[in-house]
């Protein structure tokens, strides 16, 4: 009698095999060299800690070249983009990212304009409502001409 694995167990083993294979895939990703472009995607989002207002990929100093190398090393070791950013923020402060990571600061940065816009819209709506309620609406002018002022059209006609 041929000894066969029951189909269920065979499937389970196959699953285990594939699972193991998938788990090792990140290790394969590490052996692929990190290109300059991969580093630059991240360097574009980070700011040079010591130069005023320059992104890490535009900055030409030795220091920035060293930090781009550090990014490459970290990416090679398998860190995700967010992890690299977090390392930089932890070491150099919030100023190295274009939009603060800290939620309170982010609320300050992005929240304030939104609040202002909201209140401006409310003020605008209230103002228009007030105008509607005020004196009657003037009758719409008849002019559909492309010249602004009806008086001017009249005068121009007279002058010709």
């Amino acid at each position: 009698m041929i000894n066969r694995f029951p189909p269920a167990r065979l499937r389970a083993c196959a699953l285990c095999f594939w699972l193991l294979l998938w788990l090792t895939l990140p290790a394969y990703a590490q052996t692929e060299p990190i290109t300059d472009d991969d580093v630059n995607v991240l360097a574009n989002r980070l700011y040079c800690p010591v130069c005023p207002n320059e992104t890490l990929d535009a900055c030409r100093t030795e220091a920035c070249a060293q930090w781009r190398e550090d990014i490459r090393v970290q990416l090679q070791a398998g860190a995700t983009e967010q992890q690299v950013i977090d390392t930089f923020v932890a070491r150099f402060g919030q100023r190295v990212v274009g939009n603060p990571q800290d939620p309170a600061l982010r609320a300050l940065a992005v929240g304030a304009p939104i609040l202002l816009a909201g209140s401006a819209v409310i003020v605008g709506v209230l103002t228009f409502a007030r105008w509607r309620g005020r004196k009657g609406i003037e009758t719409p002018t008849h002019a559909a001409s492309s010249v602004d002022d009806p008086y001017r059209t009249q005068i121009e006609r007279d002058l010709e």
Binding site: P49, V50, A63, W67, D70
Partner: peptide, 11 residues
């Protein structure tokens, strides 16, 4: 005493 400013540890 030296204080390392804006530097990563390995560097």
């Amino acid at each position: 005493v030296g204080v390392a400013y804006a530097d990563l540890d390995n560097d």
